[in-house]
Amino acid sequence: MTTEPHGSAAEVILVVDDDPDIVRVVEVNLRLHGFDVMTAHSGAEALDVLENRRPDLAIVDLMMPGMDGLELTRRLRADPMVTALPIIVLTAKALTSDKVAGLAAGADDYVVKPFDTSELIARVRATLRRNQEAREVSPLTGLAGNTRILREIADRLKSGTDYAVCYIDIDRFKAVNDVYGFGRGDQFISSLARSLRRATVAAGLPPAFLGHVGGDDFVVVCHPLQLKPITTKAILDFEAAADELYDPIDAARGYLEMVDRRGKVFEVNLVTLSIGVALSTMRVFEHPGEVVAVASEMKTKAKKVHGSYVAIDQRTDRLVLPSQREPESDAAAEAGSGA
């Protein structure tokens, strides 16, 4: 495995191939054309590399022992943190079926071995250009942004399958920024992204979608049966991670101290999560914007409850969740502390 330090403006390419000669040739040519390069010699090693650094594109050999390129591609597409990563697959076979298999697994393009390096460089540049134009990605979290979020919800609407849309944000996040500054605030946002990622990956199939609206706002799109495991795990994970981000004195006493304009000191509780949920099983939505509006409305209701809380739209009687208590008002289904 080879990794380069951050700080370079060059786009980073991950090369995954079990043949060290192929890796060396591709790496040298990419560097000659101004790219930064990370390398891995197996699918498992590639997943380890991605835990520490996110590339701009991956070149993946299909024919590898153990986890082959198809399985690696499927796993990358199922991981919210790298689901938008452009992938070019390398195949030693010119058969149409192998090309189709790579594209069906989620690859953006393919190159057949033996390949001309100038063709590979051209395809890398073209794929990067297409993806930069088509996918907006949060620079802080690496997650898909508003356009991709709405497209995901629209796809669910068209498919006719059941889905849940969760709108998530951090309670009292402004206080964190005011006390610690934006740098620490970004750490809380990144921590929430990681917690949500772990929760969505742990939920298994079908793959849940995770997007970053901006600031401390996130959206998860999943199957209704995945709703409780995802929200419960995310809340518990984030609250534990957030405790480590506070100054020790604030974490120990359980609140932040702030000063108002008149110089009076007052207490602000530590952060929690508010999650609003819209369900396709409750009503028929005509447009992605309607789904987001309902989820946002429920998030506002969740903020009225102390502690981390999940508020689900309950305005029809078509859905009964076994894990869901009777609603106190329009909202129900709690998870985490204080609910």
Score class of each variant (00 low, 15 high):
Ala331Lys: 00
Ala311Ser: 14
Asp313Tyr: 14
Asp330Asn: 02
Ala333Tyr: 06
Leu321His: 04
Asp330Val: 05
Ala332Ser: 15
Arg325Leu: 11
Arg325Thr: 13
Arg315Phe: 07
Pro327Asn: 06
Gln314Ser: 14
Ala335Leu: 04
Leu321Cys: 04
Val310Trp: 11
Ala331Asp: 00
Arg318Val: 09
Pro327His: 07
Gln324Thr: 06
Glu334Ala: 08
Glu328Lys: 11
Ala332Glu: 04
Ser329Tyr: 04
Ser329Gly: 15
Ala311Asn: 06
Asp330Ala: 06
Ala335Met: 06
Ser308Pro: 11
Glu328Asp: 08
Tyr309Asn: 09
Val320Glu: 06
Pro322Ser: 13
Val320Pro: 00
Gly336Ser: 09
Ala311Pro: 00
Leu319Gly: 11
Leu319Trp: 15
Pro322His: 12
Arg325Gln: 12
Ser329Phe: 10
Tyr309Met: 11
Thr316Gly: 02
Pro327Ala: 09
Asp313Gln: 06
Ser308Glu: 10
Gln314Asp: 05
Ala311Thr: 01
Asp330Trp: 04
Pro322Gln: 10
Ala331Asn: 00
Ala311Arg: 03
Pro327Arg: 03
Ala335Gln: 04
Leu321Ala: 10
Arg318Tyr: 14
Asp317Val: 07
Ile312Lys: 05
Asp330Thr: 03
Asp330Pro: 00
Leu321Asn: 09
Tyr309Trp: 08
Ala332Arg: 08
Ala311Gly: 09
Ala332Val: 07
Ser329Ala: 12
Arg325Ser: 12
Glu326Asn: 11
Ser337Ala: 13
Gly336Leu: 07
Ser329Asp: 13
Thr316Phe: 09
Leu319Val: 15
Ala331Trp: 01
Gln314Met: 12
Gln314Tyr: 06
Leu319Pro: 02
Gly338Arg: 09
Leu321Met: 14
Ala333Thr: 06
Arg325Tyr: 05
Val310Phe: 15
Ala339Gln: 03
Thr316Pro: 01
Ser323Thr: 12
Val320Lys: 11
Ile312Gly: 01
Glu328Pro: 00
Glu328His: 04
Glu334Asn: 03
Thr316His: 08
Ala339Leu: 05
Ala335Glu: 03
Asp313Trp: 15
Gln314Phe: 07
Gln314Ile: 05
Val310Asp: 06
Ser329Val: 05
Pro327Gly: 06
Ala311Ile: 01
Gln314Gly: 09
Gly338Asp: 08
Gly338Glu: 06
Glu334Ile: 01
Thr316Met: 01
Ala331Pro: 00
Glu328Gln: 05
Leu321Phe: 13
Arg315Thr: 12
Arg318Gln: 14
Leu321Trp: 07
Glu326Trp: 11
Thr316Asn: 11
Gln324Ile: 05
Ala339Val: 05
Leu321Ile: 13
Asp330His: 05
Ala332Gly: 09
Asp317Pro: 01
Ile312Phe: 04
Glu328Met: 03
Ala331Ile: 00
Ile312Ala: 07
Gln314Thr: 15
Ala331Leu: 00
Ser308Gly: 15
Asp330Gly: 01
Val320Asp: 05
Asp330Leu: 03
Leu321Tyr: 10
Arg325Met: 09
Ser308Phe: 12
Glu334Asp: 03
Gln324Met: 15
Tyr309Pro: 00
Ala339His: 08
